[in-house]
Computed example of a mutant assay.
Amino acid sequence: MLKYRNITFIGAGSMAEAMISGLIHKAGISPDRIIAANHTNENRRFELTNKYNITTTSVRELSLSNTDVIILAVKPKQAEEVLQQLRPALQDHHVILSVLAGISTSYIEEIIDRSLPIVRVMPNTSSMIGESITGICAGKYVKNEDLDLAQELSKAIGKVKIISEKQMDVFTGIAGSGPAYFYYLLEHMEDVAVENGLDRELARDIAAQTLYGASKMVMESDDSPAELRKKVTSPNGTTAAGLEALAENGGGVAIEKAVEHAAKRSKSLRKEFEKVPVM
């Protein structure tokens, strides 16, 4: 069904590009069914057109008459302005997917003042290679077929989890922001390896494959991460020494705080841009 839909991205940043790449290269969506629009950055539009052979335009010159799915992928602070611009052009057949961090479906429904289906979608940048984990939640006017469409589109760029809107903030803290935490970890593993005599490219391959293998073990094993950790930790061994250093230096707490702070920031965006109390 998805391959027969026309998709318009409002926003042409890194997340929009990641989704566009996944849809074209992993899902086989024809580039002529994808449009990306931004406000003023012509160079960015030119870059996306050359790279993916999609149509690009400015938001001001955008027509939505032939579009089925509208994907909002702008910065949260631009949400109200963009929605006000789009509102006169919205039609009954449109389905809106929002990638706006922290912005609720009810806020979007209020701004557009139309009974259109709004589905919040939170992918991550791994969608560029078809390996995202995407959380989706439904707004007030979403029907089963709209949710099916959102799932189908999201499956084209990775795995999908249907969650409640109340869970979206912590999902954002884990999955939306999570790739950066792992890149940060790999960055430091790479640096210490180089300091101890390894070539940087070799160190990167070793660290990345180790992370990939550990992730695959978690996904394919019935054991919990804690149980897997215990299985590879011999008393007084090298792994035990490394884990002791992590604990002594607050490694676990740092990870927890990263997720908590990202989730808190997602919540605060509602207060900042929607002008409503944060629960």
Rank of each mutant, 00 (worst) to 15 (best):
D146V: 11
G176R: 00
F273G: 03
K155V: 01
I20A: 02
E190V: 04
T67V: 05
H39P: 02
P117W: 11
L100N: 13
A226P: 13
Q167I: 01
S177W: 00
N66V: 07
P179S: 09
E17C: 04
S224T: 03
V218D: 06
H39Q: 04
V232I: 06
V170P: 00
T125H: 07
M168A: 02
L269A: 06
V82G: 03
I108N: 10
I111A: 05
P225Y: 04
S14P: 12
K155Y: 04
A37R: 00
K271W: 08
P76T: 07
T49C: 13
R44F: 03
N196T: 08
S58L: 02
I206C: 11
R44G: 12
L100E: 03
Y4H: 15
G252E: 03
A150C: 09
R270L: 12
G250H: 00
L185K: 05
G13F: 02
D146T: 01
A258M: 09
R265H: 15
T55H: 08
A193D: 12
A79G: 08
E152W: 01
K264L: 13
M1W: 06
V69W: 02
Y181L: 14
F273I: 10
G130V: 09
S63K: 07
V142Y: 13
N196E: 12
E81T: 12
K75I: 06
I103K: 00
S164K: 15
H188T: 15
R114N: 02
N249V: 05
H25I: 04
E81Y: 15
Y4A: 15
K143N: 11
E260V: 06
K155G: 09
L228K: 14
V59T: 13
K264I: 00
T57F: 08
V59A: 14
D199S: 07
P123Y: 04
E152V: 01
A138G: 06
H188I: 14
A101F: 05
S30N: 13
A16S: 07
N41D: 09
I10P: 06
A150G: 05
P31I: 02
T134I: 05
H94Y: 12
I71L: 04
V276Y: 05
G197S: 10
I162H: 00
P88I: 04
I118G: 14
S132P: 01
V59F: 04
Y4R: 15
K3G: 09
L269T: 06
I162D: 01
S104Q: 12
E42L: 04
S104V: 01
S14W: 09
